[in-house]
Design a protein around this nucleic acid. Structure first.
Lengths: 351, 351
DNA sequence: CAGACGACTGTGAGCGTTAACATCACAGTT
DNA sequence: AACTGTGATGTTAACGCTCACAGTCGTCTG
C-alpha cells in the first residue's frame, strides 16, 4: 500500500473516522463537546491504525514539552540516585517526563552547558541536584524565566531550594553522643566544596560549642569508604583520646569501622561511631550503624512540587526554601564511654 | 519593546544579521557553503540576541529527536544506577539526550505503557534495563521498527541484548571456593523472577556438578541485606556442615556476614563467603568481601553502541548479543576450610 | 415563528525548524 | 559573447499538532 510506511498521523485517523483532524484532537485532549458516537468512531479509528500522538508536534504547537530536566552530578551515589528516583516518580505522576544530564565535573561551565542543552530541548523547568558550591553558583546564570529548583543547594542565590537540614542532622548526631556521656566528639568531614559537608561540620561544631566542649580538628574525607578507612586508622592511633566520632556519611563510616576493627578497637565499647544518610546497608554493618536518616524521596517530591508551582504560577521570581528534617536512627555503634560519663571539667588536679 | 517577551527565533536572528532564516540554519548546522563573513554576522546576531535553537521544532522537521529512552526498574540499586550512568554518559558523548522512566512494578503492562509514552515523545530508541523475566517478555510488543536494546534481558526474544555473563560469574565464585579446598558451596539466591538470580544459580550448580560435588538446596533471598541476614542465621545454625557460601549479591552478603558475626561464626576461618557485584563498599566489609565484579559502565556503553548501530543502519531486525565478562575479586572473606582441604569422597567409614 | 443560544464540528493559520528547490552572481570555458 | 558550473543565498513548503474562529445544526424562548 504505502511504500513510505510512515506512522499514521492525526489526518489519517480523521479520514478513517470520517471527521476532521480537529475532532480527533478534541477526543485526544478530552474536550467535553464531542458527541459520544463521534468519540467512539475516532477511538475505533485510532485503535485500528495504531495511532500514537506525536508529542513533539504537540510540544511545538503548545510550547509545552511536559518535560523536566534534571541535572545531577554522580547518580551512582545513594543520595542523588534516590533523589532522582523521587523526582522521576513525582514527575510521572503529574504527567511529566524527565530528561537527565549527569556531569563528570560539576564546575560552573559544565552546569551552564547542561542548562543550555536542556533549555534548547524546551524543558518546562529544571531541577539541579547541586551539592557542590561551584554548582550552586552556576545557577546564577540560568536563562531568565526558567523555572528552577536547586536540591541541596546554597540558601542564597536567586533560586528556590529544597534540602535536608544538614546542620540539624549533625547536631542530632553530636548531641546523641554527648548525651551518652562522651566528653567530646571527633568528626570525619566530607570534601570542603560540598555544601552538605560544610553543613555537617557547622552543626557538629555548634553542638560542641553549645555544650562547652572542646572542638577537635576534623579529619578530612572525600565520602569514599577508602577515605573513611584512612581516617579510621588515624582515629585508632588516638584511641585513648577519642571516644566518639561523627562521620559525615555512612560509606566513610564503614571505612572507619573497618579500620577500627583491624586495629582491635571495639565499637561501641571503646569508641562510638555515628554516620549520616542511613543507606540500606548501614543496619547490617558490624556493628549496625547509628546514623542520621535523610528522606531523599521527600526531597525529590518537594522539589517537584516547588517546580510545578513555579510553572503553574508563571512566577520564577519568588523563591521558596523547603527544609526536610533529618532523623536520628540509633543502633548498636554508639554506647556510653568505657570510663563512665563525662561529668565536667576537673576542678583541680587531685581527685 | 515587545510585550510578549518571547525568546528570539531564527527569523529574529536573520533580521538582525540581514540574511534569511535559512542561512542562519545553515550556520547553525555547520553547512559548508556559507561565506565566512556571513557566518560571522550570523554568529554575532545570535550572540547579541541570546538566541537558542528550538530543538522541538528541529525534531519535528527532521523527525529526529536525538533523545533516547531508558526504562528501568529501581534506579536506586547500585547495578541499575551504574548502568544508567554509563548509558547517559555514552549518549551525551554522541549528542543524545536521555529520558528516563522508572517503573514501580515491572510487569508487562507497566513496560508497555512506558514504551508507549516514550514512543509518543519520539525517542530514537530505547534501552530497557530489564532484569526481570516479566519485563523481558514485555519487549515482545515493542512498536515495530523501534530500535531497542535490553540490558540484562533474556537471550531469547526479538531484541538485542547486552549483559554480564552471570553464569560465568557464578562459576568463577564457586570454583574459587572449590579450589580453596571446600567440599561444596552453599548458595543464597536472588528472587526467582530475576534473570540474574537464575543465571547465578545455574552457574553455581553447573560448577558443583562438573566437580562432582553435592548440590545443597539454595537459600532464598530478595537482594536486600535483611534477607541476607535471615539466610545468614540459617547458615550459622548449619555451621558445622557449611564451610563456604556463594551469596548472589554483595548487599545480601553483608547481611550474611552480620548474621555470622552475631552467631560467633568467624569468616573466613570457619566459613568462606563470596558475593557478587563488587559494590564500592564491599572492600570495607568485615572482613573485606571476595566478590565478582560486574562492569556496569561497560554494559551501559555497549548498550548504547548497539542502539546507535541500529539507528544508523535503520535495521532493527538483526539482533546482537553482547556479553560482558565478569571478574573475580579475591579478598579476605574466603580461605581454605578449617579441617584441611577436601580430598574426595571417603572410600570407607574408617580412616 | 423568528431569533437566540448552545452543542457540536470544520477551516485555516500558526508553532520554529529543516528540506528542496529556485535564484543570482561570478568565474572559467569555448 | 554566450554558456556552463559552482558557491552563496533566498523562497516556499512541509513536519503534525493546537488554537481561534467560523460555521451548522437543533432546540428553546418570547
Amino acid at each position: 500500500m504505502d511504500a513510505e510506511r510512515r506512522p499514521p498521523v492525526m489526518a489519517d485517523v480523521a479520514r478513517v473516522a470520517g471527521v476532521s483532524h480537529q475532532t480527533v484532537s478534541r477526543v485526544l485532549n478530552g474536550h467535553p463537546n464531542v458527541r459520544p458516537a463521534t468519540r467512539a468512531k475516532v477511538l475505533a479509528a485510532i485503535e485500528r491504525l495504531g495511532y500514537r500522538r506525536n508529542q513533539v508536534a504537540r510540544a511545538l504547537a503548545t510550547r509545552d514539552s511536559r518535560t523536566l530536566g534534571v541535572i545531577s552530578f554522580d547518580t551512582t551515589l545513594y543520595g542523588p540516585a534516590s533523589t532522582l528516583h523521587g523526582i522521576e516518580r513525582a514527575a510521572r505522576a503529574v504527567g511529566y517526563f524527565v530528561s537527565i544530564v549527569s556531569l563528570r565535573t560539576i564546575d560552573r561551565d559544565g552546569v551552564r552547558e547542561a542548562i543550555d542543552h536542556l533549555a534548547e530541548q524546551g524543558v518546562a523547568g529544571v531541577v539541579v541536584v547541586a551539592p557542590q558550591r561551584s554548582a550552586a553558583s552556576a545557577l546564577e546564570d540560568l536563562p531568565p524565566g526558567m523555572p528552577a529548583v536547586a536540591v541541596e543547594g546554597a540558601h542564597t542565590g536567586p533560586v528556590s531550594t529544597v534540602c535536608v537540614d544538614q546542620v540539624a542532622g549533625a547536631r542530632l548526631a553530636t548531641e546523641h553522643l554527648l548525651a551518652l556521656g562522651h566528653e567530646t566528639v571527633w568528626h570525619v568531614r566530607g570534601p570542603s566544596d560540598w555544601l552538605e559537608a560544610e553543613g555537617r561540620v557547622a552543626g557538629w561544631r555548634a553542638a560542641l560549642i553549645d555544650a562547652g566542649r572542646p572542638v577537635p580538628e576534623p579529619l578530612e574525607g572525600d565520602w569514599s569508604p577508602r577515605s573513611g578507612y584512612a581516617a579510621g586508622k588515624r582515629l585508632a592511633e588516638l584511641a585513648g583520646k577519642v571516644g566518639a566520632v561523627f562521620v559525615a556519611n555512612d560509606q566513610m563510616a564503614l571505612g572507619v569501622l573497618r579500620a577500627l576493627t583491624e586495629a582491635g578497637v571495639r565499637v561501641p565499647e571503646e569508641m562510638s561511631v555515628v554516620g549520616f544518610d542511613d543507606v540500606p546497608e548501614s543496619e547490617f554493618f558490624s556493628p549496625p550503624l547509628t546514623t542520621v536518616r535523610q528522606d531523599f524521596g521527600a526531597v525529590g517530591r518537594h522539589s517537584l512540587d516547588v517546580l510545578m508551582r513555579q510553572i503553574a504560577e508563571r512566577d520564577t521570581t519568588r523563591h521558596e526554601r523547603i527544609v526536610v528534617p533529618p532523623a536520628l536512627v540509633p543502633r548498636a555503634s554508639t554506647a556510653p564511654p568505657a570510663g563512665g560519663p563525662y561529668t565536667g571539667p576537673p576542678d583541680s588536679l587531685s581527685t
